[in-house]
């Protein structure tokens, strides 16, 4: 049986004004609760969060829900959540659902590095 704990990985690198979160693997219903909790804690520490998706190979609608909710929480706290480097299936899903214009690096709230 697949162990959800081994399907995905989280690494966060805090900086004084922002946090870089690097995700990897497959994210789905089995990971969204933990992903949501960790994003909430990260946003509480620094409201500006960059999420690197380069090593993520699968996301679904439940993951998109968590990312959009985290985006609202970050904006409410005066920051922004920005999705970086999606590829393959992840990029396609973010594009067809219209999420990338809102949360991609070109979104109006994304601070320039």
């Amino acid at each position: 049986m697949s162990d959800p704990a081994n399907l995905w990985h989280w690494h966060s690198q805090p900086h004084p004004d922002r946090t870089l979160v690097t995700l990897a693997g497959e994210l789905d219903l089995s990971s969204v609760e933990q992903l949501s909790d960790r994003l909430t804690a990260t946003i509480a520490a620094t409201p500006t969060v960059d999420v690197d998706l380069a090593a993520v190979t699968f996301i679904d609608s439940t993951v998109i829900s968590v990312l959009v909710s985290a985006h609202h929480a970050a904006a409410l706290a005066g920051g922004a959540l920005t999705l970086l480097h999606p590829t393959g299936q992840v990029q396609r899903v973010l594009i067809i659902t219209g999420i990338l214009p809102l949360l991609g690096p070109d979104n109006p709230l994304a601070p320039r590095a």
Binding site: D60, S61, T62, I64, S65, V66, V68, S69, H72, V93, I96, T97, G98, I99, P101, L102, L103
Partner: peptide, 19 residues
């Protein structure tokens, strides 16, 4: 229908249909 990008949920069946 596909919800606005600002709305967190409600995309599962839309994705199944669209894909």
């Amino acid at each position: 229908a596909l919800p606005n990008a600002n709305v967190p949920g409600q995309r599962g069946l839309w994705l199944a249909h669209h894909l």
